[in-house]
């Protein structure tokens, strides 16, 4: 039995593990994929206090090794539920059931999906959620970016350097992103901006070949021939498995304030998975510390 089980081994979870172990608790991290969290996709971090420059990979490795050096254990497993059964606090994965004294959810957030048929099957086969990661594969090709915020505008700008043609598709008329960024994108000759446009279908065989799009004002439908689609429509949390126990907001984030406490006394929430105004590396790390010490306080009471 563990004192503390942390669900998710990103920045918040690994930081919580460091604080938990240092407070004398026996900590298990459960991670469904590879540890490190979203930051491993960042080529360079320049806004973490005290570190002027570090790659996301190096940051994640350092953080993991630090947590491991204090004795935190890491196991692979997708958590499918939490429950209180005969007074026992349990964490269920697809393979096992773990018992513990308290839980910290640090499940993070992932890139929001369009929610279209075949979307998952075409990831890495024409669909990408990271222009900086995958853009280089589309040199000289035709791509589309979906979204209306800064990420979509930045992606369109970045991709226009390497790609032959970039379509920027946005469901509304006005962009949410910065005007200066929009003006820069508008100056790119190989970028075509289509507003009031939604993606209705993904067509192709093994690879994405065409998009079915619709103009929401005129109702006109057409297909776009392309090689790649970059989806930049924000993030979504992954807390559905905990909905029966925990209060979530309408977007699915765990309702918890700066103290990281949820509506269930033995469950805490840290990092991007909880309701908060700013989702950054520093705030994830800060949450990890706060949640771990709150959990220790609960365990010691």
């Amino acid at each position: 039995m563990y004192d503390l089980i942390i669900v998710g081994a990103g920045t918040a979870g690994l930081t919580a593990a460091i604080y938990g172990q240092r407070a004398g608790k026996h900590v298990l991290l459960l991670e469904e994929g590879i540890y490190g969290g979203q930051i491993i996709n960042s080529p360079e971090i320049e806004n973490y206090p005290g570190i002027s420059k570090v790659s996301g990979y190096q940051f994640a490795m350092n953080l993991y090794e630090q947590a491991a050096s204090f004795g935190a254990k890491l196991e692979t497993g997708k958590v499918i539920g939490l429950q209180l059964l005969d007074g026992k606090k349990q964490v269920k994965t697809q393979e096992a059931v773990y018992e513990c004294g308290a839980v910290i959810l640090a499940t993070g957030a992932k890139k929001r999906r369009l929610g279209l048929d075949r979307e998952d099957a075409l990831i890495g086969r024409g669909i990408s959620y990271c222009a900086a990661c995958d853009g280089a594969f589309y040199k000289g090709k035709t791509v589309a970016v979906v979204g209306g915020g800064n990420t979509a505008l930045e992606d369109a700008d970045y991709l226009s350097n390497a790609c032959d043609r970039v379509y920027l598709l946005h469901r509304r008329e006005a962009f949410r992103g910065d005007d200066s960024l929009l003006q820069r994108v508008k100056k790119r000759e190989n970028v075509t901006i289509l507003t009031s446009t939604v993606v209705e279908g993904l067509l192709g065989g093994e690879q994405l070949e065409q998009l079915q799009i619709k103009n929401t004002v005129t109702g006109e439908r057409k297909t776009l021939e392309l090689n790649g689609l970059f989806v930049a429509i924000g993030q979504q949390p992954e807390n559905e498995a905990f909905r029966d126990l925990l209060a979530l907001d309408k977007e699915g984030y765990v309702i918890a304030s700066e103290d990281c406490k949820t509506n269930v006394p033995w469950i805490f929430a840290a990092g991007d998975c909880r309701t908060k105004p700013l989702r950054q590396l520093t705030t994830a790390a800060a949450d990890g510390a706060v949640a771990a010490l709150a959990a220790c306080e609960y365990l010691n009471a």
Partner: peptide
């Protein structure tokens, strides 16, 4: 070499 996830998985 520039891909973080690739570096994470390399030891495995």
């Amino acid at each position: 070499d520039w891909c973080g996830p690739c570096q994470m998985v390399a030891p495995l």
